[in-house]
Design a protein around this nucleic acid. Structure first.
Lengths: 176, 176
DNA sequence: TGTATGGTGTTATATCATAACATGTCAAGC
DNA sequence: GCTTGACATGTTATGATATAACACCATACA
């Protein structure tokens, strides 16, 4: 269940940042994921399902140990591999992404669509937005082609300031 | 001193991968770095200098602990912060890059030039090539601009197969 | 000469991730 | 029905990566 009261995106829609469309919030994505996996002969088991749900509910990047804590509290295993395995499974199947700069994971908001995601990470508030990465993927593919490199997966992340934090920080000159 | 006998790039020039130009090997880069830093009022101290040298000589991505081991063996400090501080300094000043997928660092082969580097990482032999990232940086900048995000630093990495490993692996069908 | 700054070193600890193995579950084939 | 194989989950234990906090020393400069 998507809870707007705890969702940073929903709570601050005026940010014009991380503009997520609610036509596809938690439940929808979850259903979609299940169908998609079944077609590939894969199973969305309880741990995996709950892990995805946790990421979707959090609506932000979470460390593996944060996810683990929640899983453990709900009766799943208490050891790191439990979380890592579920997260890796989700990532492999395009249902979650790893944010390397944060050593964290986030639910994919566009499962099934093209997957060369780019992430915008605010260095102040740590909010992560998934930007359309098609153009970037193309540019990267071209650069790789020139040297005969075969691209299989990409990591594209930008660190900087989200609009809100830029406003708060940007105008400052002589820091107090 | 650049030692071709231990340099993967030099040892396998026929790969057409990681085509590094020797007009700018270790010594040149080192000299350039010193000048560049001095202009910005920064110092290339012994640890920092030696760290850069180690990366240049290795001519491949190295973990912080690998670098530390070498530093320690040469009389510098033996604790992680020694390596991390030097590596972070170099990265901040565009003299080294962090390869997040490998949790490793590599010397920058084009100090002073534009810095939106993209890396091509072979998942078989782990060789890392720095590809021109200008087009990618532009695409990323545009995507960010659309949502009002200010980009400060970027991480662009592609995992895949270098030409040599693609040859060795690609044609295989029924794995033995 | 005092004092501020930056660099190097330390100890200790935090954080992230995986190897190796035991157990359970379920469907396919005998 | 039982066995077997594949896969999922759980464990213990350990490895690998990274940082906080503080002590010491040099240099620069008021």
């Amino acid at each position: 269940m998507h809870d707007p009261s705890t969702c940073p995106g929903c709570a601050q829609p005026d940010l014009a940042f991380a503009p997520h469309d609610h036509t596809r919030c938690a439940d929808d994505v979850l259903a979609l994921a299940e169908t998609q996996l079944a077609q590939g002969g894969q199973r969305l088991t309880p741990v995996r399902r709950r892990t995805l749900q946790i990421l979707l509910e959090a609506h932000r990047a979470m460390g593996a140990y944060d996810v683990l804590e929640r899983l453990a509290a709900e009766g799943f295993g208490h050891q790191p591999p439990v979380a890592y395995r579920a997260l890796e499974f989700l990532e492999e199947h395009g249902l979650a992404h790893r944010i390397r700069r944060l050593n964290a994971f986030t639910a994919c908001m566009h499962p099934g669509e093209i997957h060369a995601p780019a992430f915008l990470i605010c260095r102040v508030c740590n909010v992560v937005a998934e930007a359309p990465g098609v153009a970037i993927g193309l540019a990267l593919g071209q650069a790789a082609k020139k040297v005969g490199f075969t691209v299989e997966r990409t990591t594209v992340e930008a660190l900087g300031l989200c609009p809100a934090c830029a406003l708060a920080e940007g105008p400052v000159r002589g820091v107090a």
